[in-house]
Design a protein around this nucleic acid. Sequence first.
DNA 1: GCTCCGATTATCT
DNA 2: GATAATCGGAGCG
Length: 199
Amino acid sequence: MPRSADLRALLAGPVLEVAPRLLGSTLRHGPVACRITEVEAYDGANDPGSHAARGRTPRNAVMFGEPGHLYVYFTYGMHFCCNVVCGPERTASAVLLRAGAIVAGREVARERRATARTDRDLARGPARLCQALSIGRDQNGHDLTREPLVLEPGPPVREVLTGPRVGLREAPDRPWRFWLPGEPSVSAYRPATRRGVRP
DNA sequence: GCTCCGATTATCT
DNA sequence: GATAATCGGAGCG
């Protein structure tokens, strides 16, 4: 069976099963590759924290499409974050890639991430990960079985930890963040912050 | 149109 | 810990 079929089968499952299984996989964009160490699950229309919670819009249209494509969104006026769309198809479920370790193309990644003081910071955080891998608007909707941007499943991991998702106002209690123990690239937990409100 | 604010990061105290 | 940076999506009217 070709690897693309493996990947499609993996991603077709329900998001809460797919998300932890993506840990240890590798996202590669040309010369730069990143081993994923931290993800979050977003459960489509059932999930108040998801961009898809209020139905389909031009921005989130990719989430409502085929599993295995990349949903890239722009936020805070300057950052991109990326999600892997997964199954069941048309439920708009997706897995946010929050952090990883650069395992190839370290020099290129360091040039893109000029503010990173150590290799640990190259892809620690969803926007940093996208910057290191040069993922932006042009990659929204990209099929991850197609070069030069591909997702490569890894061997099963030994242990997965879970906890609340980072930075959400809605449904902050659902323990749908998954990460690998002992990985320095995993981002620190930070509750939702509000702006323009004095306590 | 207009307003609010975000699945963040870098930098300052 | 606090906050600026910076812009487009989404809600409202």
